[in-house]
Nucleic acid binder design. Structure first.
Lengths: 215, 215
DNA sequence: CCTACCGATCGGTAGG
DNA sequence: CCTACCGATCGGTAGG
């Protein structure tokens, strides 16, 4: 999701930043700090200092530290869910899987810090906030499972246990945030192709050879 | 009756717990607490309370909170390394991979809390302790990579990029601590078989069919 | 292993 | 967005 393009027209030189822009900056700084050092290892004063503010000044824009965590985690959960919800149901399982893998990796690559907070810090959310996030994660998993099961039913995939296969595909995908490096040897596209090939092999999808039947 | 009954009489040395047993109990409680709530979210008083002690009493057995974290993380790292070091170099790549996968999953299953702390809390170690753990993790990765590369060389595996394949196998394995349930539907053995099949497929190992050459 | 206590720091509020 | 400040809690020490 793009930021409201900081228009080169008017406004900026008048000094007054856009309404929510300070808040957005706080969220961005929190995402970076929580992702790198962890939620509880980041104090509100640490966070404020990274924005050249006093600790107490943050509370002009937010109401509590956990509010920051919740917004970061929730936005990441929504980004993943948007991938699942955007799948074309008309596609065959293999192509739908490929779209989901590509979308998943794109979220991790483009929102690496938020994704890290999502995966590692969600457990520090309390009560209802946490439950809501778990529910979104479960919906995402269900979407992947539907693909795996359809592929198993049509013979596109050879899986003995769709539930286990789903967990393993998620495992393959989820851990990538721990080693993905935007400046790495492989581009995101190359990485995505390699991961798709790995997962398709794991699911027993026939290797892309010249098979007679077309689609 | 048992708790405050610190016998006013001279305590019989027969009732005295073994030298390091209190320390071991503290480590076990720390592993559980750090794994469930996280290192920084667990206070020394929380930890002490779970052992029916006062916070300050812990320091009769340890010198600092981080010492607990280091010992837990280091022991888990050593458990993983023991798997890599225990591999029979005479085995073929596929069998060596199978042994490593089985050993990896056994560590996670048998030391689930320690493994969780290892994966999620190691980043809170400072300086040299952290560097030592990273080095062990890298040695483990190198051991897996050697298997993948040998398999690629002999044709046992069909992988285009051994480094990427290594990272993906590790991803598949590492995330399991997030969903492994000792009371789950599948036994550890069934899980291991399923994960081996998944990874072998992913690496393009020929499916176990009746091929001429036997063993 | 306890009581008593330390300085530091935490998240957050009051009031401009 | 600042200064000033709050009560709570932190990791850890002293001394028995």
């Amino acid at each position: 999701m793009k930021e409201a393009a900081t228009a080169p027209t008017a406004a900026p030189s008048s000094g007054r930043p856009a309404a929510g822009s300070r808040r957005a900056a706080i969220l961005a700084a929190a995402g970076a700090a929580f992702g790198e050092r962890g939620y509880h290892a980041t104090s509100m004063r640490d966070l404020a200092a990274s924005l050249d503010l006093q600790g107490a000044s943050l509370y002009a824009h937010i109401s509590a530290k956990e509010e920051l965590l919740l917004e970061i985690v929730d936005a990441a959960a929504d980004a993943f869910l948007a991938v699942a919800d955007g799948l074309d149901p008309a596609l065959a399982p293999r192509e739908r899987l490929r779209a989901m893998v590509g979308g998943h990796l794109a979220v991790i690559a483009e929102k690496l810090q938020s994704a890290t907070v999502f995966f590692d810090e969600w457990k520090h959310l309390s009560g209802p906030a946490r439950a809501r996030v778990v529910e979104k994660r479960d919906r995402y998993q269900a979407a992947l499972r539907a693909i795996v099961e359809e592929g198993a039913a049509t013979g596109a995939f050879l899986v003995a246990d769709a539930h286990l296969a789903t967990l393993l595909v998620l495992s393959t995908l989820n851990w990538t945030y721990r080693w993905y490096d935007p400046a790495g040897r492989l581009s995101l596209g190359e990485l995505t192709d390699g991961i798709c090939a790995y997962i398709e092999g794991a699911l027993g999808a026939e290797r892309p050879q010249a098979e007679g039947a077309g689609r």
